[in-house]
Design a protein around this nucleic acid. Structure first.
Length: 499
RNA sequence: GCGCCUUUAGCUCAGUCGGUAGAGCAGCGGACUUUUAAUCCGUUGGUCCUGGGUUCGAGUCCCAGAGGGCGCACCA
């Protein structure tokens, strides 16, 4: 535990004195076990909206519990604000009703204490719906002083390191996290309703594949210290399940990538991957569009538009579509043609024209060109389709155009939201693409994973035609909740130790 | 990894030209029976992120380091 400063220690000591005073009157906050809560703050505000100033609903009594966030003492009466998970409820306490001892208890309560109150609703002189307290119990004591009641907690570092304090005093943080929970719950409902099985595949793998990123390494004591890797994707195991005949599977799981940390990257993040046998990329696109439109409806309260930063983004279907190569050609005034892009030398030349540094591989060069030329224009939800095969090692080739694959990515507000393709199910093609990756590793791209040869063997048992999708949940929540940093949608973003 | 910004009371923030530390809130004492950032009177509280240096004198200037934020690079 950190050392307290002198001033802070005095504040804690004062709270301990109040705790001792409560206990001396037989009211030990930490001895309580339950409270018969039968209403929440917002429920009561909604239910008694009809009350007029001065009107009381004395015939109905309620139990509410929450954290004391504000206390206004005026001699023989007290007004206090209680916060629960739904919102704020004002309470009104009279000394002549609850008695001297109980009133002394209220006077000894500190901001942050947990209190259960019992009473009836009325509308105060100033028009605020208020609970008139008849009985109460102190359910917990805050020994630490809370941040400023008006400004909340602003110190970003402290907000992340002590998220519990952030959640107590900054309601918008709580709202964003609750919205994240709702988005994930709605996503599950939407998928489950379409006959998918939610599955869980291992996090510890001997070979972390299915994406290109540096993995975290660890050791398994029970296996003589054998080295293992934390997964960087769930893709290959989910496709093994498709081979096994489960046909429609998904996993919402934590993925680990040992890469940089910034406003859109956290070393551990949440990914939805979903696979459907007998679907192709267009079926998946339709599903994807319906899901995102549905979630935008949930967040916007039934609408199609969301205010994201300074822009209004419309999630009305259908979303825009543009070909990968066509898009780059369009936003380069036709200079960066398909022929140039698909030729490694041509792509290198484009990099030079754009003033970008040389890339180690053709695929890397294409990514850089895409990011510079097309991505900045992808504000409204847009499906980018028909990716080159060189940057899509696990996707099936497009019929009649073997340099491209049946793949799309959904972009919104210039951020990649999802990545989907018709899965490669030809084991011979898969083997040769893994062999190509070995060469890329040899060229020094150490983010290219080691091949997973058992996955090739699985394909040799026969995988039906299948479409798959990956959706970065954190970025999706960022988009839908209008947050610009991934840390604002993660409860506990990774921070360096100490502080 | 590079650049810019930032770190002062429990919280939110001031701090001028280098002259010995300020406010509001919270806390503490008092007044107050419909307040809501309650109000009014009084009052406590400081490792100025750390370590060096310059100087008669450093919160302030210089160097190094730490934490954090943003941008770049990296990262499907």
């Amino acid at each position: 535990m950190d050392e307290l400063g002198k001033s802070e220690a005095a504040l804690v000591a004062a709270r301990r004195d109040n705790l001792a005073a409560l206990r001396s009157r037989g009211n030990d906050p930490f001895a309580q076990t339950r409270y018969p809560v039968d209403a929440s703050a917002n429920e009561l505000l909604a239910r008694y909206g009809f009350l007029e100033v001065g009107q009381h609903a004395e015939s109905e009594n309620w139990y509410v519990a929450g954290r004391l966030m504000s206390k206004r003492t005026m001699g023989k009466t007290i007004f206090a604000d209680l916060h629960d998970r739904t919102g704020r409820l004002q309470c009104y306490i009279r000394k002549d009703e609850i008695g001297d001892e109980a009133f002394a208890d209220w006077e000894d309560l500190d901001r942050g204490d947990l209190v259960g109150v019992h009473g009836f609703m009325f509308r105060s002189k100033k028009g605020d719906l208020t609970l008139h307290v008849l009985k109460f119990a102190v359910l917990g004591k805050a020994l630490m002083p809370l941040p400023d009641k008006w400004h909340g907690l602003q110190d970003v570092e402290k907000r992340y390191r002590q998220r519990y304090v952030d959640l107590i005093v900054n309601p918008e943080v709580r709202d964003a996290m609750i919205m994240r929970s709702r988005i994930i719950a709605e996503t599950r409902r939407f998928i489950d309703a379409r006959g998918f099985y939610e599955v869980e595949t291992p996090t510890l793998l001997h070979v972390a594949g299915g994406a290109s990123a540096r993995p975290f390494l660890t050791h398994v004591n029970a296996l003589s210290g054998e080295q293992m890797q934390l997964r960087i994707a769930t893709e290959l195991n989910l496709k093994r399940l498709i081979v096994g005949g489960m046909e429609r599977v998904y996993e919402i799981g934590r993925i680990f990538r040992n890469e940089g940390i910034d406003t859109t990257h956290n070393p551990e993040f949440t990914m939805l991957e979903l696979y459907a046998a007998y679907w192709n990329m267009l079926d998946m696109l339709d599903f994807n569009e319906a899901l995102i439109a549905h979630l935008a409806g949930v967040v916007s309260g039934g609408g199609t538009d969301l205010q994201i930063g300074e822009r209004t983004i419309s999630f009305a279907r259908p979303f825009a579509r543009i070909g990968y190569l066509e898009g780059i050609a369009k936003y380069s005034d036709g200079r960066f043609t398909r022929e140039r892009l698909l030729d490694p030398e041509g792509a290198s030349a484009i990099l030079r024209e754009l003033g970008l540094p040389d890339s180690p591989t053709h695929g890397h060069a294409l990514d850089k060109i895409f990011e510079r030329v097309l991505e900045p224009h992808l504000i409204q939800p847009t499906f980018v389709t028909d990716y080159p095969v060189v940057i899509s090692p696990l996707a099936k080739r497009k019929a009649g155009d073997p340099e491209l694959v049946d793949r799309y990515e959904l972009f919104c507000n210039t951020m990649e939201i999802s990545n989907a393709f018709t899965e490669l199910n030809d084991p011979d093609d898969q083997r040769s693409r893994f062999e190509a990756q070995i060469e890329e590793r040899a060229k020094g791209d150490d983010e290219v994973p080691e091949p997973d040869w058992d996955f090739v063997r699985a394909l040799e048992y026969g995988m039906p035609p299948t479409a798959g999708i990956g959706i970065g949940i954190d970025r999706l929540v960022m988009l839908l909740t209008n947050n610009t940093s991934i840390r604002d949608v993660l409860l506990f973003p990774l921070q360096r130790q100490h502080g």
